[in-house]
Amino acid sequence: MRTQTSASPTSSGTASSTESAIELSDVDFGYTSSPVVEEISLRIDPGEYVAVVGPNGSGKSTLMQLMLGLLRPDEGVARLFGESAHQFDDGERIGYVAQHASASKEMPITVREVVKMGRFPHVGFGRLSSEDWDIVDRALDTVGMAAFSNRRVTQLSGGQRQRAFIARALASEADLLVLDEPTVGVDMESVEAFYNLLGSLNSDGITVLLIEHDLGAVTEHTDRVICLNREIYFDGSANEFVESDALARAFGTTADLLGGSR
């Protein structure tokens, strides 16, 4: 393979424990007979800040679903916190922010009710305690949506909706945050603040995994970049990624996503 897959080069010393957060070994997957991802091996340790990049249709979202156990690999093994990913059910350890396509768009539901769902893995069949509600309200404060907490989600702009979903992930107080293109539709200033928030969460010890097509943001903010196009083209530090030719190879000739033409 063309990559240094074993590396977690920049994770800041927190990865001393033996349990990986995410581990894939020799994973193949295809919806039909043609593979969407192939021969993927990688390990993400607790405390890392990792971005997965790649062109459209490169299998980024599929890879994420494999990591989260939403899909089962055709070949190979996917592990979450040491357990087989599809059997993993300790949901309170994972916070998830989707491309906002996944949630219902017409349902009458307030921002606070959405953020409340972040506490569901903790309360199970019970009711939210006042502590749970405190955590919900703090998460709303953190993303600057406190004034909107009783607004119906359908009345929000795309960026505001996305903030609400980020607050839900925060309220889950997870060890691992997985975000699939979280800043789509978010206004420019907020994007910067949003990456700062992720950075600060990461320095508190939370593992952050970002699926992103905004390569500029990725190279600026994350520690480690995994470049994917069906297979892994690059896995290493963000600085090395900028200097390498992985981008050109993975994206083929249309590698103008960094803003300029290459």
């Binding site: 955590i135 703090r138 404060d141 953190t142 993303v143 600057g144 949506m145 406190a146 004034a147 909107f148 505001q160 903030r163 925060l170 107080e173 907020s190 603040a193 949003f194 700062n196 928030l197 950075g199 600060s200 969460l201 508190d204 939370i206």
Partner: peptide, 15 residues
């Protein structure tokens, strides 16, 4: 209502 800014400082206050 005024949308607040994303507040990095109280990102994870409970720990």
């Amino acid at each position: 209502p005024e949308m607040g800014s994303i507040d990095v400082s109280d990102a994870k206050p409970s720990d």
